[in-house]
């Protein structure tokens, strides 16, 4: 909405919006307080005292490190696969016209449009039908499937903003397909891919619903947390891990936001 009159909102709207935003953010901030509580056995509020001892305790936990390591590996490989598949798909859909383009967009979105439990159980039953044992790679397979859409969306948006005649201009000036990809396409979609990749990483790093179906005995960090939620062993350690996860996902999201904003200016400059 655009309004030339600079006016301020009615008080009711202001309050409702502020309360709504507070509702979104306060619970996450609360985690930060609990990471410092001295209380071990319950979720008592207010905390009886504050301490930093749980950071050291968490640091010394091999199971946390193991879960973190697995999550990072899974996220990195899933992101790499999603980058390749999502970019190929976006390029095909936005650079050429062919029968069934709409169906392909739908196909890419389906893994996150359907409830995660359906994706999870479908993959699990397919693994069991095909007698594939659970492993690192079955987790990656599930994650890459729903990460494709994030990369795809970012890449398609950028392709749409990039003038189609740039590719023709490059070929006209003597660059073959590979040179055009290297010198024109990649620099123009680069930041969008980086942003998509970061979001895909955050999505994979955080995923739990599909993972419970595609992981065997292996624990990613979210699976570890889920275990702690269902059967708490050492609550303060969970608090610290939760806080670190919030901080760790914050950075790629902020980076992705600034990358795509910057990208808009780059892509818009040719117009």
């Amino acid at each position: 909405m655009r309004s030339d009159r600079s006016q301020s909102a009615p008080l009711g709207i202001k309050i409702a919006a502020a309360v709504g935003l507070a509702f979104l953010h306060l619970p996450i901030l609360l985690i930060f307080v609990y990471a410092f509580t001295t209380e071990e056995k319950s979720y008592q509020w207010p905390p009886p005292g504050l301490t930093t001892q749980w950071f050291a305790a968490t640091w010394a936990r091999p199971d946390v490190w193991q879960a973190l390591g697995l999550s990072v590996q899974v996220a990195a490989i899933s992101t790499a696969i999603a980058l390749v598949l999502g970019t190929l798909c976006a390029a095909a859909v936005s650079q050429t016209r062919f029968f069934g383009r709409e169906a392909i967009s739908l196909l890419v979105i389906l893994p996150i449009a359907l409830p995660g439990i359906i994706t999870g159980i479908a993959l699990r039953s397919a693994f069991s039908l095909a007698e594939i044992p659970f492993s690192f790679w079955t987790i990656v397979l599930g994650h890459a499937t729903f990460c494709v859409v994030v990369v795809y969306n970012n890449a398609v948006a950028r392709f749409r903003r990039t003038s189609g005649s740039l590719i023709e201009a490059s070929m006209d000036l003597g660059a073959d397909g590979f040179q055009t990809f290297r010198h024109v396409i990649l620099p123009n979609i680069g930041t969008a891919l980086l942003a998509g990749g970061m979001l895909a990483f955050a999505l994979s790093f955080d995923e739990v619903i599909v993972t419970t179906f595609t992981a065997g005995q292996q624990q990613t960090l979210p699976i570890w947390m889920l275990e702690e939620l269902v059967r708490p062993r050492q609550r303060p350690v969970t608090n610290v891990v939760a806080m670190v996860v919030v901080l760790a996902t914050l950075l790629p999201i902020l980076a992705a936001y600034y990358l795509t904003r910057e990208g808009d200016q780059i892509a818009g400059a040719g117009k």
């Binding site: 953010h25 996450i28 985690i31 955050a202 999505l203 955080d206 939620l229 939760a242 996860v245």
Partner: peptide
Amino acid sequence: GVMLPLWSSYLVKVYAWKL
């Protein structure tokens, strides 16, 4: 302010409410 809670960890959000 909307994107950050959207992308923050699902489990952490659930956990915060358990607290």
